[in-house]
C-alpha cells in the first residue's frame, strides 16, 4: 500500500515536471501553425508561416547542418587521434594538454568569440566565410569528443590492446583502424552525438561570429524573434524541432547499438 502511494507520488511529480517543460514547447509549436496567435487556435490552422520561414531561412538551416557536420568531421579527425595520443603518452604534458583542450568548457562562448575576432578578424576572407564559425564550433565542441573517447580508452585498457596488435605485426595505422577505433566506438558515437547537438544549438559564440551572410539556425531564430511576428518565430521553432529531433533519435539509436556490441 505504502509502496503504491510512493509510486503514485513519484509518477505524479515526474509528470508534473515533464508537463512544466513540455507545455511551453507545445504552445510554441502550436503557435507556429495558428493563423493568428492572439485570437487562438480557433482562428484556424495554417502552414503559411512554416512556408514563409522555409523561404526566408532555408539558407541558415542548410548552413547550420553544414557547420554541424563539418565540426563533427574535424573533431573526429583531430579529436580521436588526439585522445589516443594523450592516453598512450600519459604523463604530465598530456594532462596539461588535456586541460587546455577542456578550457573552452569553462570560458564563456562570448569570450572565445572575442578572442577569435581579435586574432583573425583582420583576415577578411576567413572572417566572412562560414569557416570562421566552424573554427569557433570546433574549439567549443572538441573537449566533448576528446573527453568521451578518453573515458572509453581508460575503461578498456587500450594500451595493452594496442601492444597486443603490435606484437602480431600490425603497423601503428593498421592498429589504429583495426583495434583502437572499433573499441573506442561507444565513446566516439557518444562524442559525435554531443558535438552535432551542441553545434546545431550553439548561439553565444555563433552570434558574435556571424555575418549577415553566415547565419545559423539559432542565430536566425533570434533574428526572427526580434523582427517577425510571433507566429513566424514559432514556425521557426517548429522547423528546428522537425530537423533536429529525428537526427537526435537516429544518433541515439546508433550509439545504443554501438554500446550493446
Amino acid at each position: 500500500m505504502r509502496d503504491r502511494l510512493i509510486f503514485a507520488g513519484q509518477l505524479g511529480f515526474t509528470l508534473l515536471v515533464a508537463a512544466f517543460l513540455v507545455v511551453p514547447v507545445v504552445l510554441s509549436i502550436s503557435a507556429g501553425v495558428t493563423v493568428n496567435y492572439f485570437r487562438g487556435i480557433q482562428s484556424g490552422v495554417t502552414l503559411q508561416w512554416v512556408v514563409q520561414v522555409w523561404n526566408l531561412y532555408a539558407g541558415e538551416i542548410g548552413l547550420s547542418f553544414l557547420i554541424a557536420f563539418a565540426t563533427l568531421a574535424v573533431t573526429l579527425v583531430v579529436g580521436v587521434p588526439a585522445a589516443y595520443g594523450l592516453h598512450v603518452k600519459g604523463g604530465r604534458l598530456s594532462r596539461v594538454i588535456e586541460e587546455i583542450i577542456t578550457l573552452p568548457l569553462a570560458i564563456p562562448g562570448l569570450a572565445i568569440a572575442l578572442a577569435l575576432l581579435l586574432t583573425y578578424g583582420g583576415f577578411g576572407g576567413f572572417r566572412q566565410s562560414w569557416l570562421f564559425i566552424l573554427t569557433g564550433h570546433v574549439i567549443f565542441t572538441m573537449p566533448f569528443m576528446v573527453r568521451s573517447v578518453m573515458a572509453v580508452f581508460a575503461s578498456v585498457d587500450i594500451k595493452t590492446l594496442d601492444e597486443g596488435a603490435a606484437s602480431l605485426g600490425a603497423s601503428p595505422w593498421t592498429r589504429f583502424c583495426n583495434v583502437i577505433v572499433p573499441n573506442a566506438m561507444p565513446g566516439i558515437l557518444a562524442g559525435s552525438l554531443m558535438v552535432v547537438t551542441l553545434s546545431l544549438g550553439e548561439f553565444n559564440l555563433t552570434w558574435m561570429l556571424h555575418t549577415p551572410l553566415t547565419k545559423t539556425l539559432p542565430v536566425g531564430l533570434a533574428d526572427s524573434y526580434a523582427s517577425m511576428r510571433l507566429e513566424v518565430a514559432s514556425a521557426y521553432t517548429l522547423i528546428f524541432f522537425i530537423m533536429i529531433v529525428p537526427l537526435l533519435v537516429a544518433m541515439q539509436m546508433v550509439a545504443e547499438k554501438g554500446e550493446k556490441k
Binding site: V156, D157, T160, L161, E163, G164, A165, A166, S167, L168, G169, A170, S171, N178, V179, P182, N183, M185, K261
Partner: peptide, 20 residues
Amino acid sequence: VPIEQRHVGMVFQSYALFPN
C-alpha cells in the same frame, strides 16, 4: 626494430584479446 617487425608472439597477463 619496432615490435611489429620483430616477429615475436606475446601472451599478456591480461591476455589483451580484441573485444571487437
